[in-house]
């Protein structure tokens, strides 16, 4: 068996990439390619499915099979890919717009169905590609180009949503926490059933500029400070918690995935049905 390095999963022909200086997308992509290599996969075993947006452009830089589709439907394409060939490792790379805003319905149903897919959701709290408008994860009061005086809507907690809807593996981290990011991606990709890794990612150009700081370095410091592990988070006061977000793996269970259930149920009914037809 040939072993592959992360570079075998990276299509370098299109570098430099389109992302802004200090954008976290490149770091998440790096962690993704490293995770695939360390798992001993080959590019032909993997289908990377992307949506639309900054992170939706990531397929331009992957050397696996790839499907880049319309906005919000990555999980729906991926569901078809997985059921069309269940031997494939299928990973969706979606932004917060793709995953829980325009594609929110597919997200909750993929989790409920527990289809054997991995969703790497890069959450930068806004629509970067189209100029920094608010999304369904933009926090209350945050400033974006469509909420110039502050967002009147609260944002979704992607991990809680995934957990409630039934995902087998749910985790959150940041590009600053690169080692844990890579390891969580490996766990998620290996996990049978629906797995979600939310990566809170800096967008210095838009969300950072309006709400944190336009400097890439400052945004990384922000992630370093704001992302705290579960144990530490639990010891915080409510006020402190509101100023931070919790990182780590929150759900890790083994509910049977959709295709396993589907095969089980249909083989049972198939034998019961024999006499009828």
């Amino acid at each position: 068996m040939t072993t592959h390095t992360h570079k075998d999963f990276l299509d370098q022909r299109h570098l430099p990439h389109i992302w802004c200086p200090g954008c976290g997308d490149g770091i998440v992509l790096r962690a993704y390619t490293m995770a695939l290599a360390e798992l001993g996969l080959a590019p032909k075993d993997v289908v990377t499915v992307t949506g639309i947006g900054c992170w939706g452009k990531s397929d331009d830089y992957v050397a696996t099979h790839a499907l880049h589709g319309t906005h919000g439907r990555a999980l729906a394409y991926a569901t078809g890919v997985k059921l069309g060939n269940p031997d494939l490792t299928v990973v969706t790379l979606m932004g917060d717009g793709d995953a829980v805003t325009i594609g929110g319905n597919h997200f909750i149903h993929a989790a409920r169905r527990n289809i054997d897919l991995t969703a790497i959701v890069v959450n930068n709290y806004n629509y970067g590609m189209t100029g920094g408008q608010y999304s369904a994860t933009t926090p209350l009061n945050s400033k974006t180009t469509t909420s110039p005086l502050g967002n009147a809507e609260p944002g979704f907690d992607i991990c809680s949503l995934a957990e409630t809807a039934g995902a087998n593996f749910v985790a959150r981290t940041t590009p600053y926490h690169i080692v844990s990011l890579k390891n969580l991606l490996k766990q998620a990709i290996t996990k049978k059933g629906f797995s979600v890794v939310e990566v809170i990612t800096p967008c210095p150009t838009y969300f950072g500029r309006y709400n944190i700081n336009p400097s890439p370095v400052a945004n990384m410091h922000w992630l370093k400070e704001k992302g705290v592990p579960v144990a530490k988070y639990q010891q915080m006061t409510e006020e402190e918690q509101a100023q931070h977000f919790v990182i780590g793996a929150f759900v890790n269970k083994d509910r049977p995935d959709f295709y396993t259930m589907y095969q089980q149920i249909n083989s049972r009914n198939g034998t019961e049905r024999e006499g009828e037809r």
Binding site: L15, H17, P21, C23, G26, I27, R30, M34, P175, I178
Partner: peptide, 10 residues
């Protein structure tokens, strides 16, 4: 390796 892993631009 933190430098190359965290480099957003490869």
């Amino acid at each position: 390796h933190l430098c190359d892993w965290r480099c957003p631009d490869f």
